[in-house]
Amino acid sequence: MTPSSPQLAAIKSALFLACLIPGFFLWRGFELDTLGANPIETVTRSLGEWTLRFLLITLTVTPLRKYTGWHWLIRLRRMLGLFTFAYGLSHLLTYVWLDQFFDWEAIAKDIIKRPFITVGFAALMLMLPLAVTSSNFAIRKLGGRRWQSLHRSIYPIAILGCVHFWWLVKKDVTWPLVYAVITVALLGIRAWWREQERRKQLAGGYLPKPKFEGKVIKIFAK
C-alpha cells in the first residue's frame, strides 16, 4: 500500500490538523475555565505529557514501517518530530510564563537545583538541533549518515523525558511507568535489530543488503 502523491498530501494535512487538536482543546479549556481548580498546572502538565506522547509516536514510525512494509510512513515522521518539539517548547513556555512569570533567577535556580527540571530542560535543549536540522536542506548539507547519527540522540532524549516525568510525581508513578515501558519497548526493539544484524554479519561473513542504511534518501521527493 503506497499512497499517491495527492493522497499523501491529504494524509499529511489531516495529520497536521490532528496534531493541533490537543493544543486546541487546552486553549479552549483555558478560555472557558473548564480545566479545574488549577488550570495553569493542568496546561503545563498536559503539554508535557503530549510532548512525551508525540515523541513516542515518532519513535513508532520505524517499527511500524518495518512490520507493515508501509515505507511511506517515513514521510510523516518529520512532522511528528517537529510537533514533539513544538509541544515541548510550549511546555517550557508555560513553565517560564504561567508558572514562574519570567522570574529568571528562580528559573535558573530551578534548572540547576531541581534534578527533574534539569533533566527536562536538557531533553528540550537536545531536541533543538534536531528540530533545526529537520529539513531536506540540512540532510543534504550534513550528509545522510551524519544527519542520522545526530538524530539518534532522540533515544537518550526519550529516556530523559521519562526520567523527567518519573521524578516529578509525588508518589503515584503509574503513568510515568506506562511511558517508561513503552519507551523501553521502542528502544529495545532497535537494540534487538542491531544485535540480529551483528550476528548475521558474524555468522555469514557477508555484508547484509542495506536495510535502513540509505533509506533516509527516500525522504526526498522523486
Partner: peptide
C-alpha cells in the same frame, strides 16, 4: 527549607494567576 525536588519559597493560591 525546600522539598528536595522543588522549591517551597512560593505558592499558587488557587484561583489566582501569579504566585
Amino acid at each position: 527549607v525546600d522539598h528536595p525536588r522543588w522549591s517551597q519559597a512560593t505558592e499558587r493560591r488557587i484561583g489566582e494567576f501569579s504566585k
